[in-house]
Simulated assay, not measured.
Amino acid sequence: MTDITAADVEHLAQLARIDLADGEIERVTGELIEIQHLIQKVQEVATPDVEVTTHPIAMHNVTRADEVGEPLDRDAALAGAPDSDGTRFRVTAILGEEQ
């Protein structure tokens, strides 16, 4: 793998329509070369016999199963309401005159 050049960075910046000053091109080139070297180090360590994971800890679904049950009747639902009209919840209006 060859190192990234300032010309490469300048070309990519032009394609992405990013205006970079000469000092920025040099800095970004150095940073990308360092990143490239770090990727090479990781590739040296990675082995094909290591199982690919998406999360370091095995995760499983902790929700309960969906089971059909008796629905809550209206009186029971309204019993805990701070205000109701006997058939539905009553809440304070939140919309102004614009509605």
Results as ranks from 00 to 15, higher is better:
E97K: 13
V9C: 02
E67Q: 08
G80P: 10
L15E: 14
E51C: 03
R64V: 07
I25R: 08
V52T: 13
V91H: 06
E10I: 06
E67H: 09
H60N: 07
T53I: 05
L12W: 14
Q14R: 11
L15V: 10
D73F: 09
E51L: 07
D66Y: 15
I94S: 13
G23M: 08
G96V: 04
T2V: 06
D22S: 11
K41I: 05
E51N: 04
M59A: 03
T54H: 10
A76N: 12
G96T: 03
L72I: 14
A16H: 04
E67I: 15
L20F: 07
R27K: 11
V50G: 03
L20A: 02
Q43A: 13
V50Q: 02
A79M: 06
T29A: 09
L32S: 01
E67D: 05
L38M: 00
T63D: 06
V50L: 03
Q14T: 15
G86W: 06
A93V: 05
D19I: 00
T63N: 05
E70W: 05
T53L: 01
L95V: 15
G23T: 10
R90A: 14
D3P: 05
I94M: 10
A16Q: 12
N61P: 01
V9A: 04
I25P: 00
I57Y: 00
T29I: 03
R88L: 15
A79D: 06
P71V: 07
A13F: 11
T29D: 02
E24I: 01
S84I: 12
Q40A: 02
T47F: 02
T5M: 13
D3T: 12
D73G: 04
E31C: 08
Q99S: 08
R17I: 03
R27M: 12
A16K: 10
L12H: 09
E97F: 13
Q40P: 02
D83E: 15
A58W: 00
A65R: 10
G69Y: 12
A46V: 04
V45P: 01
L78F: 07
F89P: 14
E24C: 12
E24S: 02
A16M: 12
D75Q: 07
R88M: 14
A79R: 05
P71M: 09
R90H: 11
V42L: 00
I4K: 03
Q14A: 12
A13G: 08
P48S: 09
T53H: 00
V68I: 09
T29P: 02
D73E: 10
D83V: 15
L32V: 07
I39L: 11
E44N: 12
N61M: 04
L95E: 10
K41G: 01
L12E: 06
G80L: 13
A77I: 06
A77K: 07
T54E: 13
A13R: 02
V52N: 09
G30K: 01
R17L: 09
M59Y: 05
Q40D: 11
V45Q: 02
D22V: 05
P48I: 01
G30P: 03
T53F: 00
